[in-house]
Design a protein around this nucleic acid. Structure first.
Lengths: 356, 356
DNA sequence: AGCCTTTACTAAATCGTTTTACTAGATTGG
DNA sequence: CCAATCTAGTAAAACGATTTAGTAAAGGCT
């Protein structure tokens, strides 16, 4: 018995620092009890009613003393649960994904989950590879942000944020683009604009198509025409305003006049404003510019950006919440295919009444 | 034997879709071999030399057919390795952390590692709790970004990015602040500025103190004086330009004149410019503004921001690389306590010669 | 024929938990 | 006084791999 105690003691003392880990077995041996008993007591299992308080105290005391931490791997293996979800994003360092991720994290950590992230840069091969790696690591579900992620061959529950609505088993958290287009176009029309230019998103972005369809629809309902020459598109996948800058230069090069520009997001709006100013056009006097997202810096652009706010953080939170709800509900229960959140028009100083 | 095969077959067929998981044992039973043999062959272990090619082929074929994926948990438990590191950041949605995280990810994923993130919002209690949770999940090491993370009581290897140099066992990846201060101040002095205002970072930010000390030193070496009334500090922990805006309003309220402003980062510089313009001061004609970091949007501010570039992505990469190197080196080997990266002055249009 | 190698495998232990099914001894009820 | 119940636990299986230490059969050598 002395010898046994010594074994544990040695390990604890070694190096003069707190030891890395004591296993349940070691702790049990030290207390002359079986691992079963410790497990029962430490997890406060129903079966522990028959264990006298004194023994319980002994166990708790020892656990604290030796800083016992159950091995998460062993536990997960046994319970077949990892309390981990996988998150797929196009790119971490653009504000959009980071914001959504922030919301996801808020919710997950509060529920004692963690997440593994992988960014695929819109490369389908990478995406598929990461999806597999995440499955292999036994994540319990996936959240795909602005990513086309087929739920068909996935045995895991998937929730998308701004994904393609449509895959049968996945829930998609998305903005009400119809409404977003309406508030933006209405704002411009009220200011007297009729010649409006657009910067569409990249093809790989899930929002691009829906949003532009919504814009077409809104334009029609306000009796406005879209001049196809005044539609540019972001190209490349850098999260820099550069792309908006380039797109706007193209618009200017057509020599078709426009008095307002609706950009795909705030970042590209920033680049657009720069291009306009370089071309000698003042914002908003000569051209009104309206962005999308309402990232932190939008309010502090020069001029401060009028934009359609997308509640990104809440969308992330909602996605995480939905995923966990689905996990606990078992795979038979149906869940909604679409959860819509509402945009909000934030009027600042990059839009003004049409002067021409 | 028929019956055995049928068992696996059933599972595979069920639901008409690819089944979630086949274990090694099931696969072995199906092939009438032992799990050992399969493990040896699938991992191409040295002991598999004696297995005839035909058997190997059979095994590989079956593994592919049934889409066998080894259970990562079981493997990790056995090998006592998780190929996972923990990352602690103050806040995900500010550009700084996201950028560093991007670099960390690049390197880790390429090395077949994943990472778990937790953001502590500069709350010491949360930080400690997350550190423990990460340990419990058996991460092999920690990367702390802009976070005071004592390595003393941590049994895990720690690498910090812009952490406090000093903790004995941790490697810190940091900018050469001395050099950064020199290039910035030199630039302003060359432009003729002598009355320079400063916005310091928040107290909780690890960079704040070192950087300001470096600035003091640089100012002295250029024979310039710091007017303590012209030193403001960011307060609060929102990643919005608002904080820089507020700080600048305070500076303006002192009525002490200044012709240049050195902000703690690009985000606060953006807010500062806004405050200056509202006060009727033009940038750079009346006041030159210099930022820090060179985030994506810096080049597209109005005016485009002169700034001290910090290679954040590379810093993340370097941190990850250092951590993995240390992991494979075993805990006896010494590693450097400080890895310094170099800043770069990016001159744009928010600074100009002093006119007054 | 007898011994040694090689070939082609397998049994069992292990990682650290949880859980189910037990048991020995004490107490209680009728 | 005997059976049932309660108390205070424990042994062993399981989760799904990896690894060590075998073994049975075949072939080669003298």
């Amino acid at each position: 018995m002395r010898a046994k105690n010594k074994a544990v003691g040695d390990q604890i003392q070694n190096g003069g620092e707190v030891n890395q880990t004591v296993s349940l077995k070691e702790l049990a041996r030290h207390l002359n009890l079986s691992p079963t008993t410790l497990s029962l007591v430490l997890n406060d299992a129903p079966a522990s009613v028959s264990i006298p308080q004194e023994t319980k105290d002994r166990i708790h005391r020892a656990a604290r003393e030796f800083n016992y931490r159950p091995n998460f791997l062993a536990r997960s293996l046994r319970a077949q649960r990892t309390f981990t979800v996988g998150v797929l994003v196009p790119e971490l360092s653009d504000g959009y994904s980071a914001m959504v991720l922030g919301g996801i994290e808020d919710f997950l950590i509060q529920e004692n989950y963690f997440y593994l992230v992988a960014s695929h840069r819109h490369d389908d091969v990478l995406l598929e590879q990461y999806r597999r790696l995440l499955c292999e690591r036994r994540v319990e579900g996936l959240i795909a942000v602005d990513t086309l992620c087929g739920g068909k061959d996935s045995p895991l529950p998937v929730v998308t944020v701004s994904g393609h609505a449509g895959a049968k088993e996945v829930t998609n958290v998305a903005l009400d683009h119809t409404r977003a287009a309406i508030v933006a176009i209405e704002h411009l029309k009220t200011l007297g604009h009729t010649r409006i230019a657009f910067i569409k998103g990249q093809d790989f972005s899930s929002d691009t198509e829906v949003r532009f369809a919504a814009i077409r629809h809104a334009m029609k309902s306000f009796d406005l025409r879209i001049d196809e020459k005044l539609v540019a598109q972001l190209e490349g996948n850098s999260p820099s305003p550069e792309l908006g800058y380039v797109a706007t230069r193209k618009l200017l090069a057509t020599k078709h006049n426009f008095t307002a520009l609706f950009a795909f997001n705030d970042v590209s709006a920033t680049g657009a404003i720069r291009a306009l100013q370089e071309a000698g056009k003042n914002v908003p006097e000569d051209v009104s510019v309206i962005g999308f997202d309402d990232v932190y810096s939008a309010a502090f652009q020069n001029p401060p950006l009028t934009t359609v706010r997308q509640p990104l953080r809440e969308m992330g939170k909602l996605a995480a919440e939905t995923l966990l709800k689905r996990l606990s509900a078992g795979r038979d229960t149906e869940s909604p295919r679409l959860l819509t959140v509402q945009p909000e028009l934030i009027v600042r100083e990059s839009t003004a009444t049409c002067s021409s």
